[in-house]
């Protein structure tokens, strides 16, 4: 083992000893870190799940073409032929107005409404699936179909998905900002913890410097302590996120099902967990680094 590795091992061991020497204080500090981190972490997990749902839906964009009321069967068939001949369209399906009403009645929450109708207000429609995945192409198809004489209204069904994408992006950005703000608070917590440790170990630090310890030797255990404390906080945060997700997932999934949305909430993957732990450890290390820089930098030996 090299000399440097030995010194790092020594510092790590010292930091670990300090951490376990005061288990309650260490646990409370870790809880502070964990509670602050679990909020943005849980938010990001939920936003990612919604994002995954949006990505799945946006993979199959659909365009609904509603015909004018009173359009004859022949005119509808003619439009169907034109759609079939259009190279930009991958598939098309005719939905007669009676079938549309049946589908509406079958959907949760609309059965009672459909039953009260005296006559069917829904038009005949075509549901088409275009080739490609360029929103600009979809828009061009929408415009050209809207110009057909049989067509009353064309709806690009991917529009809501785009809005969902934007909402997910905004949600993710908000979580990053929240994580940044809470992260800054955690740096301050770590800074203060290390400041108190330096104060209580002032005598030991002074003696070590007197005996020929380098400043790096003195700083190192505090840096490792901050890192370990952050890491412990990250592990507890992961536990809190997993626990909350386990509790909240069935409720959110049931809520989504009431809107005919199949949502299978997934927890953070290995990369997400690693990022959480690394972020927590980095914050602890950063706070400790700032603290030792502030309180040990070329200070006098008592």
């Amino acid at each position: 083992m090299t000399h440097t590795l030995f010194l790092h091992q020594l510092a790590l061991r010292g930091a670990f000893s300090r951490l376990v020497a005061r288990p309650l204080a260490s646990l409370l500090s870790a809880l502070v870190v964990a509670i602050a981190l679990s909020l943005p972490a849980l938010g990001l997990v939920l936003v990612d799940n919604v994002g995954r749902l949006a990505r799945g839906v946006s993979g199959k964009p659909e365009i609904s073409v509603f015909l004018k009321t009173g359009t004859s069967e022949a005119a509808a068939r003619a439009l169907g032929e034109q759609l079939r001949a259009d190279a930009r369209i991958a598939s098309q399906r005719f939905v007669p107005r009676d079938e549309a009403l049946r589908q509406l009645s079958a959907r949760g929450g609309f059965a009672d409404v459909a039953g009260t109708l005296e006559e069917n207000p829904l038009p005949d429609a075509f549901v088409i699936e275009p080739h490609g995945d360029d929103p600009a192409d979809f828009e061009a198809i929408r415009v050209s179909l809207a110009a057909k004489p049989q067509v009353d209204y064309v709806q690009l069904d991917s529009a809501w998905v785009e809005r969902l994408h934007a909402a997910v992006g905004l949600g993710r950005w908000c979580m990053y900002v929240l994580a940044g703000l809470l992260g800054a608070a955690l740096v301050i917590v770590s800074f203060n913890t290390i400041r108190l440790q330096i104060l209580t170990q002032r005598h030991e630090i002074a003696v070590s410097l007197l005996l020929g310890a380098t400043r790096s030797f003195v700083r190192r255990p505090f840096l490792y302590f901050g890192l370990l404390q952050g890491l412990l906080g990250g592990v507890v945060a992961w536990g809190i996120v997993a626990l909350l997700l386990w509790q909240i997932a069935p409720r959110i999934e049931a809520f989504a099902r009431s809107y005919s949305i199949v949502l299978d909430l997934a927890g953070p993957g290995p990369a997400g967990v690693a990022a959480l732990l690394a972020f927590a450890a980095l914050l602890g290390w950063l706070g400790a680094g700032l603290s030792v820089r502030r309180h040990l930098h070329d200070g006098p030996i008592d």
Binding site: H203, A206, V207, S208, L210, L211
Partner: peptide, 26 residues
């Protein structure tokens, strides 16, 4: 160095105190 106040670390054993100069040099 032997200072006027012995400056031993009171929360460590005599052995650990004497070991300290060797620890700081790795």
């Amino acid at each position: 160095l032997v200072m006027q106040e012995h400056r031993l670390l009171t929360d460590r054993t005599v052995f650990d105190n004497v070991m300290l100069p060797l620890l700081v040099t790795g």
